[in-house]
Amino acid sequence: MISKKEKRIRLLLSIAGLVIFFGVWEMAVQMGFISSRILSPPSKVVSAFIQKLTDTKPEGATLITHFLMSFKLALSAFLAAVIIGVPLGLFMGQYKAFDRFLTPIFEIIRPIPPIAWIPIVILVAGIGMSGKVFIIFVAAFVPCVINSYLGIKLTSPVLVNVARTFGASDWQIFTKVCIPSSLNMVFTGVRNALGASWSTLVAAEMLASTGGLGYMIQMGRQLIRPDIILVGMLTIGCTGALLSWLLGLLEKKVAPWRYR
């Protein structure tokens, strides 16, 4: 257990880190080390953020519209990747036939960075929703499969043997031993997938889109509005951090045995 005092010190350290980071940034711009035409100070970003919540200028939509567009896109692709990728990885880890059949294909797809899919996807599916969903799906799919696969492979053989000496069937060993034992690895994979889908989203939107956070950032560059760019970036950063924190809470609920 962590004592109250230690908790407070940890919180204080985290806050100090943020304060110093934004403080240095603010000072650097205010004192003229960096031109405010290139980099807006945090104070300006905050006011731009508040304004952009309701203002459609200059590129045509409010921050909330952009955000929801991106969020729906990333979330649907991410969920699809988890729903398909995790069971697939688990089965590949457990059953040799799956492993043999799918691993070669997977090994070829795996090293291709998600953004390298963009050109072919645009050719095939255009710049609509489905193309971007596919790219993000690929980005999130790979870590889901790998970690689930490894989670099964890393299951202690003795724990498997224990169940075997109880007379457990292969299916019981899979569901009662291997899957619970790999849950923590699965969660790590899902968390990586979340990060990957969120960052790939922006790349996809910057290249081909008519809306969304990536599009907003891209327009900010074209209109030379660093404050808009930074609002977009910070929205992405904060949302990512929030989602990953939520996922952590879920993990503690579903797989609490690793935590104190």
């Binding site: 003795v158 043997n161 224990v162 000496t165 109880f166 007379g167 031993v177 619970p180 849950l183 797989a255």
Partner: peptide
């Protein structure tokens, strides 16, 4: 004996951490 008909205590304690 069939599998399941022997009681075995394994070296070190291999009990299921999630149970």
């Amino acid at each position: 004996p069939k599998m399941g008909d022997l009681g075995i205590v394994f070296q070190k304690y291999y009990i299921y951490p999630w149970k």
